[in-house]
């Protein structure tokens, strides 16, 4: 059985992550066609439930759904009954009553996708919950890394910056290590989670010592308000210690991938030059986001359970132009 929901990377394990990456290859081919559209999810209804601002994730999901011929329902918090005080549960029950196959949810509060999954029958896809999880970001990051390196086994990836408040970091660590990579998180202690018990990664406060050893450096967005919270003395000091500056860029290996989930704070966690460097995969990550989300939607909604085991025939076994594709 394919998973019903995508809530957390931990729910997938290596087999399902690899299956999604294989599916992504097929859908990347679809995306490259002159008319990048297949009928795979025709008749399926997907609702977007974005309680928190999003540009790339939402557009990426919408594009993915359209390329799969799914119907979509847009939900905008600012112009909806949420403004009239409707509760999260009632909003979900309302959407569910209209007949929906999946809800893609982003919320500022950790755990909301889990709560919704208990309230209604549809598949729930977590598009980011608070500081907790952002599984499709991690999957597109894995895809971007495998495009460059093939297997992630034995690769070393540094995730740098505000780990404490980052759903991207929590999902990426789980996904990268599930695929066999070694992860080192690098941040001032104030931006580390209070406890790292059970975290499958190494910890460092010395970016310059870590950088020469990595195959990829993943920079997290440094939010401006962290300075007001006294988590760092100043953004300038943060950049000096933990930013991918022009100086650090010069010492970066020729094959080291530069990654960032966006939106970037140029000049803070990443210099202008580093962001636009040929080693930067930032726009590739965005492009891969559409294909990965097509794969996720297809995995959850397109298969009918029994034939969707990781070892079952894959959609592209028939050639991408045949069958459902």
């Amino acid at each position: 059985m394919s998973p019903k929901h995508l809530l957390s990377i931990d729910d997938l394990g290596r087999d399902w992550i690899e299956e999604i990456l294989r599916l992504t290859d097929s859908f990347a081919e679809v995306s490259a066609r002159p008319i990048p559209k297949v009928p795979a999810l025709r008749g399926k209804n997907i609702a977007w439930l974005f309680y928190e601002d999003s540009t790339r994730t939402r557009l990426s999901f919408e594009t993915a759904a359209k390329r799969l011929s799914a119907d979509t329902m847009n939900f905008s918090v600012s112009s909806s009954s949420v403004n009239k005080g409707e509760s999260l549960r009632d909003t979900c029950l309302t959407i569910s009553a209209m007949g929906v196959d999946a809800i893609v949810v982003r919320h500022k509060s950790a755990g909301v996708p889990w709560q919704i999954a208990k309230w209604i029958d549809a598949s729930i896809i977590n598009a980011g919950d608070g500081w907790h999880q952002h599984p499709t970001q991690a999957l597109l990051d894995c895809y971007t890394l495998t495009q460059k390196f093939g297997s992630l086994d034995g690769r070393h990836i540094a995730i740098v910056g505000d780990i404490k408040h980052s759903r991207v970091a929590r999902s990426d660590i789980a996904a990268f290590t599930a695929l066999g990579a070694e992860v080192t998180i690098v941040a001032p202690q104030t931006l580390m989670p209070p406890s790292l018990e059970g975290w499958n990664c190494k910890v460092s406060h010395d970016l310059d010592a870590v950088l020469p050893t990595v195959d990829a450096v993943y920079l997290l967005r440094m939010q401006l308000e962290r300075q007001q919270e006294a988590l760092v003395p100043s953004l300038r000091e943060y950049t000096a210690g933990y930013g991918l500056t022009d100086e650090r860029l010069e010492h970066l290996g020729a094959n080291t991938l530069i990654m960032h989930p966006g939106p970037m704070n140029r000049g803070v966690e990443i210099s202008q030059k580093a962001a636009d460097d040929p080693r930067s995969a930032v726009t590739q990550q965005v492009a891969n986001g559409v294909s990965v989300r097509m794969a996720v939607l297809f995995l959850l909604l397109g298969n009918n359970g029994s034939d969707s085991h990781p070892n079952a025939p894959r959609p592209n076994d028939q050639g991408p132009n045949e069958g459902i594709l």
Partner: peptide
Amino acid sequence: GEWSSRLGI
């Protein structure tokens, strides 16, 4: 602690 760190709460 351990759980708040993991759950992002």
